[in-house]
């Protein structure tokens, strides 16, 4: 356990929780598909910070770094595929409005 950890833990956790809230707000309260993806991206950034914090307070920085680098690579791939899908939706409907993609129901 790092000696600065007890003082740093709660402020950092609070900051990360705020990032989560911002990301969730961004995903839930928008009809724009690209904005929803940006919200998801903000959520993943919060998780990245949480892993770094976990590595710092347990003094496992090397492990946390390797995890975070892997995570960033994967997240870029996922978001790229998601943007590709959004582009496909844009080609079909001509808009980025999430209210248009409610055909499948029941």
């Amino acid at each position: 356990m790092n000696e600065l950890a007890p003082q740093l833990f709660w402020p950092c956790t609070l900051g990360i929780a705020m990032i989560f809230v911002i990301g969730l707000y961004c995903v839930l309260f928008t009809y724009n598909l690209i904005r929803a993806l940006i919200g998801l991206e903000i959520l993943i950034k919060g998780v990245t910070l949480l892993i770094i914090l976990a590595g710092y307070i347990t003094a496992h920085e090397a492990l946390a770094q390797s995890l975070v680098i892997t995570l960033i690579v994967i997240e870029v791939v996922v978001i790229t595929v998601a943007v590709g899908v959004v582009l496909g939706i844009r080609k079909h409907t001509g808009s980025l409005d999430a209210r248009n993609i409610r055909n499948l129901k029941g």
């Binding site: 598909l33 993943i44 949480l50 996922v78 998601a82 899908v85 409907t93």
Partner: peptide, 29 residues
């Protein structure tokens, strides 16, 4: 269009699941 719609819903829920899973991993760490 239907395929993109299905894929988009899967992606959004899957990313949310990923975020939950990674937060759990961080807490386990």
């Amino acid at each position: 269009f239907a395929a993109f719609e299905g894929a988009f819903k899967y992606i959004v829920l899957s990313v949310v699941a990923t975020v939950l899973m990674l937060s759990a991993i961080a807490l386990f760490l």
